[in-house]
Design a protein around this nucleic acid. Sequence first.
DNA 1: TTGACGTATTCCGTTATGGGTATACGATAG
DNA 2: CTATCGTATACCCATAACGGAATACGTCAA
Lengths: 115, 115
Amino acid sequence: MARAATTADAFNAVAEPRRRQILDLLAQRERPVNDLVELLGLAQPQVSKHLRVLREVDLVHVRDEGRQRMYRINPGPLRDIHDWLRKYEQFWTERFDLMDTVLQELIEEDADDHD
Amino acid sequence: MARAATTADAFNAVAEPRRRQILDLLAQRERPVNDLVELLGLAQPQVSKHLRVLREVDLVHVRDEGRQRMYRINPGPLRDIHDWLRKYEQFWTERFDLMDTVLQELIEEDADDHD
DNA sequence: TTGACGTATTCCGTTATGGGTATACGATAG
DNA sequence: CTATCGTATACCCATAACGGAATACGTCAA
């Protein structure tokens, strides 16, 4: 088995920075492909390919409007990521970071004692 | 360019389900490698390799204890993901999802009118 | 010192990425 | 009907992932 497909889930789709940028731009408003091409400074085919990935994990919706294709964000699938992360939120408060550091030092000192 | 390395950042490291499982297990307590091997039902080398990735993005810390290596979670880097996600939280409330659906239908009806 | 244990590394094969470039395709303007 | 616009797809290349299997390495027990 190789690495999971980028279209496997939101985690994989969003691991690519360009695709995060695209979502950020679509979060502002619905946009046609050429808008994204300009704003990202990427070649049009690459943008279309990233959009395909985002479509396949249902992070964007498309709508035909004449010869343009309007892309809209659909943030629902991001919730899976958020749900997974939620259990870690407590860990990265300032106070906890400090406690973590102190504990780590204690553990290391203790390990030294055992030499 | 190929796909970004799994060690490029927390986004890529955490895109792999096994590595999320490992973090979940380490969130409970510090553990030696063999604990993870048993709990995950994976071969030991694969676990060591996943741990290497997690180490390289600083999501885990190691500590030598005799012939064992104790792994501890370091959730700090997850914060980057959380920060990026935060701007989307508002989008996936029930009420917004409903509004989204209604808007989508209106847009589609409108598009039909233009035929 | 030797052997067993716990863990890391290396090599292999399969798979798919992301960018580049060329091209195909549908819709609309003239 | 044809040319052009907006977009999607196909093809190529370089890169690296992940799992499997073998093996190397450091630590401790006898």
